[in-house]
Amino acid sequence: MGDKISVLIVDDHPMLREGVAAVVGAEADMIIAGEAGDGAEALAKFIALAPDVTLMDLKMPGADGVSAISAIRAESPDARIVVLTTYAGDAQALRALRAGASGYLLKSSLRRELIETIRAVHAGRRHLQSEVAHEIAVNAIGEALTDREVEVLRRVASGRPNKEIARALSLSEDTIKGHLRNIFAKLDVDDRTQAVTVAHRRGIIQI
């Protein structure tokens, strides 16, 4: 590979991997080290190929992108990983960054920003797409949902009524109603549907 930046592409969609490979492979200073279709394969390929930069999707079957980032960073603390995703949600972005990602890009901007992001991350810098940075900034002052509130909201998103949620979590129905009031206040919404919509957009829950 010489002086070229070697790149590992991780995504469960072959056509997306093919498109990214075409964009990256056209650069004189880059080379495709390999591809992986899920988080477990990503770790195996990373260990085998030792790429300079790994491009990581977040939503994949089995081990997701955040888990793969954590596993790769545990294997190699200096690993340089750029997230490629369709979601601008601040909560999801923060999870990826805390796991060890150095960059975060939306797939809609691949042609505009991908190459320079790879070069920046390879040089030891971070790159956070402006739209994602804005989402993080807008929601930074808000109070985060607790683990219990997230669990309640996941069950709400699955269409479960309060009584069923209370029974599943071994809590009273009044306690569930209290959690929902806190969730509505923290997300600045008025009802269950809005709460699920906002939480999904921000990456707090997956639907």
Rank of each mutant, 00 (worst) to 15 (best):
G89M: 05
T85W: 02
D78I: 01
I69Q: 07
P51Q: 03
Q92G: 14
D57I: 02
D57P: 06
L105R: 06
A63Y: 00
A96K: 06
R98N: 15
R98P: 05
A71L: 11
A68I: 05
T86L: 15
A40S: 15
K59H: 13
I72D: 08
G62I: 08
R80A: 11
G65M: 12
D64L: 07
S67D: 15
A36W: 06
R95A: 15
G37A: 15
A36Y: 08
L58H: 03
L58M: 12
M60L: 05
G100L: 04
Y87S: 14
A96S: 11
R73D: 02
L106W: 09
A44T: 05
L105H: 04
A36L: 10
G62Y: 11
Y87L: 14
V66W: 00
S76G: 04
G89Y: 07
S76L: 03
P61Y: 09
G39S: 14
R80I: 07
L97T: 00
A71Y: 01
S67N: 13
P61E: 09
L97S: 06
A88C: 11
G103I: 03
V66D: 04
G103R: 06
E75H: 15
A63E: 13
P51D: 05
I72W: 12
S102M: 14
Y104R: 01
T86V: 15
I47C: 09
A68Q: 00
P77M: 02
A50G: 11
K45Y: 04
M60Y: 06
R73I: 08
A91Y: 13
A99I: 08
P77F: 00
S102T: 00
A42I: 05
R95T: 06
R98S: 14
Q92Y: 00
R98A: 14
D90G: 10
R80S: 12
S76D: 15
G37T: 12
M56I: 03
L97N: 00
M60F: 02
A74S: 13
F46N: 04
V82Q: 13
A42N: 00
L84E: 05
V82P: 10
E75P: 01
E75Q: 15
V82M: 14
L105P: 02
G103W: 07
S70D: 12
V83P: 02
Q92E: 14
T54N: 03
K59L: 12
S67R: 13
A68N: 06
A44I: 04
L105N: 08
Q92R: 13
P51S: 08
A101F: 01
A99V: 02
A48K: 10
A101P: 05
K59C: 10
R73Q: 10
L97H: 07
A36D: 11
L105D: 07
M60T: 02
V83I: 14
A63L: 13
Y87C: 11
R73P: 00
M56R: 08
F46R: 01
I47G: 10
A44Y: 00
